[in-house]
């Protein structure tokens, strides 16, 4: 078994031996359901789609993903197992990738568990299942971006709380900069080119595009680039910390 998969396996089973995974899943599913049906006008819109469901995902991830990623490296550092891990014949990038895949896979499992909502909408009406599939893919990609950010924040500190707050803050800013209200507000003070750029780096805009069922290559590239960049930064931070 490759070292990456061995680490992924260990991390993933690690989620399930502690209550973390179960607490997370229950809250994720309850909140996804609650927000979709109550806050998201699921019924009143009179449309058979999962738009309100996917619209809620960025905000759910904002709170829940940092909780999944905060121990990722901070705990290894605090408990001393980092020394053990780095004395194994595993490169830093393999370790980062292994842990990332575990967290991403875990969110993937949570998304699969929301299938009853999809069944509900199919029972109630005749939705475009292609759009829904695209919505799931987009949501999962966005979760990947959040996790990559959380990975990087977790490498910076040995305190899980600090890692949580940093991750939530960075993700919040990246969601916020794409909101039309924010862009409108900044219109007078910030040059238009910068406004355009802000819209482009925002997680929100790209997530929104995919939630509408359009799998545009640019959005896919954006998410993959975000994931690669933050994971790359994590590798750099971990390597730098070996020299300090």
């Amino acid at each position: 078994m490759s070292p990456v998969l061995a680490i992924t396996r260990r991390e993933l089973s690690g989620y399930f031996v502690t209550p973390v995974a179960y607490v997370f899943m229950v809250i994720f599913l309850v909140m996804a359901g609650f927000l979709t049906f109550y806050t998201g006008d699921f019924y009143d819109r009179g449309l058979a789609d999962l738009q309100p469901f996917f619209d809620m995902h960025p905000w759910l991830y904002l709170v829940l993903v940092p909780a999944v990623t905060m121990p990722m490296w901070a705990e290894e550092r605090a408990s001393g197992t980092l020394e053990l891990l780095f004395s194994l014949p595993v490169s830093i990038s393999q370790a980062v990738l292994g842990k990332f895949l575990a967290a991403w896979g875990f969110i993937g499992i949570c998304l699969v568990l929301t299938l009853p909502i999809w069944i509900t909408v199919n029972y109630l009406g005749d939705p475009d299942n292609g759009v829904i599939l695209a919505g799931y893919v987009g949501s999962w990609l966005m979760a990947g971006a959040f996790i990559a950010i959380g990975t990087c924040m977790s490498t910076l500190t040995r305190s899980q709380i600090v890692a949580f707050i940093l991750t939530a803050s960075v993700c919040f800013v990246l969601l916020l900069v794409g909101q039309p209200q924010v862009l409108d507000f900044l219109q007078d003070t910030v040059p238009p080119k910068l406004i355009g750029a802000m819209g482009q780096v925002s997680l929100f805009r790209h997530a929104n595009a995919i939630a509408r069922g359009v799998l545009d290559l640019r959005d896919l590239v954006y998410f993959f680039a975000t994931i690669v960049a933050w994971l790359g930064a994590s590798v750099v931070v971990l390597d730098l910390k070996r020299t300090r």
């Binding site: 070292p3 061995a6 396996r9 260990r10 690690g14 031996v17 408990s79 001393g80 053990l84 014949p89």
Partner: peptide, 22 residues
């Protein structure tokens, strides 16, 4: 201080070591 992953069983931990070393 012999650090190890406290939430794993001894078998799981040693098993992980075997796998991760390929």
């Amino acid at each position: 201080g012999a650090p190890s992953y406290g939430e794993m069983t001894v078998r799981e931990f040693l098993d992980f070591m075997v796998r991760v070393r390929g």
